[in-house]
């Protein structure tokens, strides 16, 4: 079976310093996969390679069996890759619902200059309904008309997830969704993510260094350290591996 998303032999160097070293990874349809590693291990860099924000020096990225190496970011996004950002990236000067509406418009591809000119470019009722459905699913329907500047960090993360969901992703890449959140917020986020994933059935690649969230949410996990994969396999087994624990220098306890 071809993987939904696969990276093989990906290497990246920043001015001579290896950030990723021959990394190979795969995510199958509907699967929940974790990618963990200490700060600076190269997790975000790998994300950027998968999404085309960064061109790897060598290695390939495949989506549904197609080599997407030469594709720009927006094309990969349309082909089924959604993502969130470690440092929240929202569109200033817009409301929560407008975030989802624009994503929906891009997905359904019905926007065109001439339609705008004859006044047919405004959000349609069906689009608004689709957005409200996702907002409800994420439990932020009460915030729909809020400007995003007024949201808390946790709420902003959910808006990012919602925006990514509107693109109808086959695989959702989440970059440290818990960073900056306290324990309760993290728990609430994890519950929401799990519920939504189960109802929509897309695959998830979750980057985290909060190991308990990874242990809770993922089926399989990859461990990255200084740019190299040091372990992979079922989450519980990998997290019990002494080498993995050493990479974290005892910075977490598996419960």
């Amino acid at each position: 079976m071809t993987a939904l998303l696969a990276a093989s032999g990906v290497s990246v160097a920043f001015s001579g310093i290896r950030a990723l070293n021959d990394v190979t990874l795969r995510v199958d349809a509907g699967e929940r996969v974790g990618l963990i590693g200490p700060n600076g291990a190269g997790k975000t860099t790998l994300f950027n390679c998968l999404l085309g924000i960064l061109q790897p020096d060598s290695g390939r990225v495949m989506l549904n069996g197609a080599d997407v190496g030469g594709w720009p970011v927006h094309r990969r996004a349309r082909a089924g890759m959604g993502r969130t950002f470690q440092r929240v990236e929202l569109f200033s000067d817009t409301t929560v619902r407008e975030h989802l509406l624009i994503a929906e418009r891009i997905r359904n591809g019905s926007g065109a200059l001439w339609k705008d000119l004859i006044g047919r470019g405004r959000p349609r009722p069906t689009e608004i309904a689709a957005c409200d459905e996702v907002l409800e699913l994420l439990g932020i329907d009460g915030l729909a008309d809020q400007p995003v500047e007024s949201l808390s960090l946790g709420q902003s993360r959910l808006v990012e997830v919602g925006r990514a969901l509107m693109t109808g992703p086959q695989v959702l890449l989440l970059d440290e969704p818990s960073s900056g959140l306290d324990r309760d917020e993290t728990q609430a986020l994890a519950d929401t993510l799990r519920a939504v994933q189960e109802s929509r059935g897309y695959a998830v690649l979750l980057v985290e260094h909060d190991v308990s969230l990874v242990a809770d949410f993922t089926e399989r996990v990859y461990v990255l350290d200084s740019g190299s994969l040091i372990a992979e396999g079922p989450t519980a087994e990998v997290l019990a591996d002494p080498a993995v624990r050493r990479a974290y220098l005892g910075s977490f306890e598996v419960s």
Binding site: F91, E98, I102, I106
Partner: peptide, 24 residues
């Protein structure tokens, strides 16, 4: 108010995020 303007607003807000939802 239409697609063009909202697309440009998205780009102005965050170029990477706009690309990540398929905006060229």
């Amino acid at each position: 108010e239409g697609t063009v303007g909202r697309t440009l607003t998205a780009l102005r807000g965050s170029e990477v995020a706009a690309a990540s939802i398929g905006i060229s």
